[in-house]
Amino acid sequence: MLLEVKNLSKTYYSGKIPFQALRAVSVSIAKQEFTAIAGPSGSGKTTLLNCLGTIDRAESGQILLEGMDLMGQTKNELAALRKENFGFIFQTYNLIPVLTVFENVEMPLKILRRFSAAESKKRVLAILAKVGLQGLENRRPLELSGGQQQRVSIARALVKNPKIIFADEPTANLDSANGEAIVDLMRELNEQEEATFIFSTHDPLIMKHAKRIINIRDGMIVS
């Protein structure tokens, strides 16, 4: 198993009032899956996704990445782990506005410090071509449409060939045509690049593109 989750629980506090977002969730994700975590808002799908992506901490349970437990790791260890293994796609794209499309996509490679400038350029241009943004390398994110921005975001997530790509409501800010195009692209890349995708959505139209759907309600998996 690529990713195994056992009995994961997470409680939020809004002020002093606790809200249990995850209740002993257990789930397994295999390599090259294209999994949707589905559920209405407030169901805990984003929390689950964030916990899996280690950008949020669960209070109990286990998250095993290829058998390695991530729960006990330090902040820095997790940062290094994300750098190597995870890619992220956000609902609001979260591109760095001062950087060009090219620079945004290049960023994960830069901090990996593993690639020569030439190699890194080759990779960035290749992935941008794949997401259909050739010619827009020098644009700034704000000069692009929402769909285009999300493509940049996908390219950024994929450029380093991560083990898993987490996408939190990647289509929520897009109209349905654009949304479907994005999911199609993700699916395509899932096949071509053998990338594992876990994404959250509440949109049935998007859900149907998934190979596997995990339904979550009130912090628990229902199917």
């Binding site: 820095n76 994300r82 992220f88 956000f90 979260n94 901090i111």
Partner: peptide, 16 residues
């Protein structure tokens, strides 16, 4: 703030 979050998600350490 959000950019910071993104960078952290991308694997920037706190120190960086």
């Amino acid at each position: 703030k959000r950019e910071i979050g993104t960078m952290k998600a991308l694997g920037f350490t706190d120190k960086e």
